Simulated scan of single mutants.
Amino acid sequence: MEIIGWILILLFFVIGFVGLIYPIIPAVLFIFGGFVVYGLFFDFADLPWWFWAIQILFVVLLFGADAVANLVGVKKFGGSKAGLWGSTIGLIVGPFVIPIVGILVGPFLGAIIAELLFNRSTLKQSVKSGVGSVVGFVTSVFTKGIIQIIMVALFFLVI
Rank of each mutant, 00 (worst) to 15 (best):
K75Y: 13
I3E: 15
K81F: 13
L104G: 02
V28A: 07
W85R: 03
L61I: 11
I146H: 00
E2I: 09
F35D: 12
I7D: 11
V127C: 03
G86D: 08
Q55G: 07
G86Q: 00
A153D: 10
D46W: 03
V18E: 11
S80G: 03
G34D: 09
G33I: 02
G83R: 00
I100V: 15
G39S: 00
W50N: 14
V28R: 00
Q55E: 15
G34W: 03
K75N: 07
L104E: 07
V158T: 15
I146V: 15
V138L: 14
G145V: 01
G78D: 07
V131F: 12
A65W: 09
I146A: 14
V101H: 03
A53R: 07
T143F: 14
N119Y: 04
A45K: 13
I9P: 10
V74M: 07
V141A: 05
I21C: 08
G79H: 07
I112G: 06
L40Q: 11
I92M: 12
F137M: 13
K81I: 12
V68Q: 04
G78F: 06
P107F: 03
V134I: 08
V105I: 15
L104I: 13
I21R: 03
G5V: 13
V59N: 13
L84C: 04
S129C: 07
F41H: 12
I149W: 09
F156A: 03
A67E: 10
F63Q: 13
M151V: 01
V36F: 13
G110A: 07
W6Q: 11
P23H: 09
D43A: 14
A27F: 01
F96C: 02
G94R: 03
L20Y: 12
A114H: 01
I4M: 13
A153C: 05
W49L: 15
L117I: 14
D66Y: 12
L11H: 04
G39F: 08
F42N: 11
F156G: 04
K128N: 14
G145N: 02
L40N: 09
Q55M: 14
